[in-house]
Amino acid sequence: MNRLSLYIRQSLQSIYSPQELKSLTRTICCDLLGVDAIDFFLGKDIHLSENKQKELETILKRLRNNEPIQYIRGYADFFGLMFSVAPGVLIPRPETEELVDLIIKENAGALRILDIGTGSGCIAITLAKKIPLATVSAWDISEEALAIARQNNSQLGTSVSFCREDIFDVIAKTEFYDIIVSNPPYITSLEKEEMDANVLDWEPELALFVPDDDPLYFYRSIGRFGMESLPLGGKIYFEINQAYGDKVSFLLKTIGYRDICVIKDLFGKDRIIKACK
């Protein structure tokens, strides 16, 4: 290990696990400081200029303050694409990639797709990329999130239609959709103590938390909207809190959906629900 890598790991070892440090060190050196990847992996000694050394110290300070590396980089990887991110949007997760992958595998053609609570736009934009004949729309209540989503839309060359809309205040629409997808807030405040500081201190609460006394708050409203806006045979897909698979499934059944399926993620946790109208 070269001296630069050793210095980075020693500076952050009280906060991050050895596995996290390995990944962070590579990201800091190669992505943020511009160190040649071959030199890094060969363990060659790397000498930074004065400006680069200052840049490194700023990065380390931000990491010690629990700021996510994705916000420091300014982008996050999702489904092989690079999405701009900032504290106003949730950082895309691998579980959400599984949701998107399922939709892509099960659907094709000139579909009308709506993503509710789009955040960075990662779901909507990836679906537009991978189902090229689809017409994709996306809603969010946050203007800050929509600005970032529109930036990603432009950078990644897609034509998703983004709109500020509150699902709890939505006026009856004339549009109909073949697919509605949502990764809504689903964490209760009781679960906060189990969460890392880099999530709690930096990512938007608006995109994370639901009331403890009504954790199905968003699923109920989106599900009811779907019954009005999906044709017979139309599909709805949700990412869910692992603790509420049965409850969301029962809720969708009472609203009127059929063929309801709870799907586990790669870690064996209930994470996706799909249903048909």
Rank of each mutant, 00 (worst) to 15 (best):
T58Y: 05
I59Q: 08
I59W: 15
I59R: 04
I59M: 09
I59D: 01
L60E: 11
L60D: 02
L60V: 03
L60F: 12
K61A: 15
K61F: 14
R62T: 00
L63P: 06
L63Y: 02
L63W: 00
R64E: 13
R64D: 15
N65L: 15
N66M: 03
N66P: 01
N66L: 03
N66C: 08
N66F: 12
E67A: 13
E67V: 09
I69M: 11
I69Q: 02
I69D: 06
I69W: 04
Q70V: 03
Q70C: 05
Q70K: 03
Y71I: 09
Y71S: 12
I72A: 13
I72F: 03
I72E: 12
I72P: 15
R73W: 10
R73K: 14
R73Q: 13
R73C: 09
R73V: 08
R73D: 08
G74M: 13
Y75C: 06
Y75Q: 09
Y75V: 01
A76N: 07
A76R: 04
D77I: 05
D77M: 07
D77A: 12
F78S: 02
F78I: 07
F78L: 08
F79A: 10
F79N: 12
G80E: 00
L81D: 03
L81M: 13
L81P: 00
M82T: 15
F83N: 12
S84T: 14
S84W: 10
S84M: 08
S84K: 14
V85A: 08
V85L: 06
P87H: 07
P87S: 12
G88C: 08
V89F: 10
V89W: 14
L90K: 01
I91W: 04
I91H: 00
I91G: 00
P92W: 04
P92S: 08
R93F: 00
P94K: 10
E95A: 13
E95Q: 13
E95D: 15
T96G: 09
T96C: 07
T96F: 00
T96V: 01
E97A: 12
E98S: 11
E98M: 09
L99F: 05
L99N: 10
V100K: 00
D101G: 06
I103A: 00
I103K: 09
I103Y: 13
I104V: 14
I104P: 04
K105C: 02
K105A: 11
K105Q: 09
E106I: 10
E106M: 11
N107W: 09
A108I: 14
A108T: 15
G109P: 08
A110G: 07
A110L: 11
A110E: 13
A110W: 13
L111W: 05
L111Q: 05
R112K: 14
R112T: 14
I113S: 05
I113V: 09
I113P: 02
I113R: 10
L114T: 05
L114S: 07
L114N: 08
L114G: 12
D115H: 01
D115K: 06
D115W: 01
I116S: 04
I116V: 12
I116C: 06
I116G: 08
G117F: 00
T118C: 07
T118G: 12
T118V: 01
G119K: 09
S120R: 13
S120D: 02
S120W: 15
